[in-house]
Nucleic acid binder design. Structure first.
Lengths: 143, 143
DNA sequence: TCACGCTTATTAGCTTAGCTAATAAGCTTG
DNA sequence: CAAGCTTATTAGCTAAGCTAATAAGCGTGA
């Protein structure tokens, strides 16, 4: 046990760290570029394959109308395409368009430079801690 | 080394985890309650003592006009008070009001229940990982 | 000493991101 | 096949962020 903060302190500290780092991440967006929210949704589509808006909204932990907006932005840019659901006329299947995949590839290489640089400054052991924590935090967020 | 993800994967994963957990945290706000942003600013004032708007905006990694808005919200609720700067007529000193301190104390006890509950579900070892990572993430955000 | 240039805070106006409530369309089932 | 559920969208709101422009005060150099 390296640290022995109280549960309250840990909670507060983690919330502050998340809040500020999130703010910092949002700042790093070059103008005219995808926002963190848009990128995250597009990434979910790549991971999840073709998803309906509802499924995507659940994956992103966002209400359906919010996802409608995000999807609209991505569609404006031609990054996703929609196909009718084979058996259910209400639903729609969303997936990244060819251009969407291309953009994702670009981001994977070019983007996140700030965060990647920061992580590179850490020791291998610290990076390992962060990697394990990232998995835990995802689990937390997943419910 | 438990994990051996590539640097790119780690970056992407951490960004996603931060983004989603942040979203989840924002959701947990009871209506009529302080937002995460407002709480963070108020906390900075408690930690930093009397700060000018500029200093506070730097602490929160936000542009000055954004901080003007946040401060206005907090003032509406009577949670911070402003006093003129002793030597510089342009500047203002902000600090939590008595009520602001009281609210902070309340939050410290009552709030963050969701996150605290989640953390309680982790094993002691996992919690330790998260605690160490939180410290690292704060350092990352600090620049 | 005082005019000009910097700093600080605010205002105005925009975008994004989130929410709830209400609608419309399509399914499903008794 | 009507009634009720599910899905997606629309409408309209708030919060949170930004940049550009303004106004006030400070400080300095000719």
């Amino acid at each position: 046990m390296v640290t022995q903060a109280s549960a309250e302190e840990l909670t507060q500290r983690l919330r502050d760290a998340i809040t500020r780092l999130n703010r910092r991440l949002r700042q790093e967006r070059p103008v005219g570029d995808l926002t963190v929210t848009q990128l995250s949704a597009l990434t979910s589509l790549r991971i999840g394959g073709a998803l309906t808006p509802r499924e995507l909204s659940e994956a992103e932990r966002v209400q359906p109308p919010t996802m409608t907006k995000i999807v609209a932005k991505l569609e404006e840019r031609g990054l996703i395409s929609r196909t009718p659901h084979p058996t259910d006329g209400r639903q729609v299947l969303l997936s990244p368009s060819d251009q969407g995949f291309a953009v994702l590839d670009d981001y994977q290489r070019v983007r996140d430079e700030w965060l990647a640089g920061k992580l590179a400054d850490l020791s291998a052991q610290e990076r390992d801690t962060v990697a394990r924590a990232a998995a835990l935090l995802e689990r937390l967020a997943r419910d």
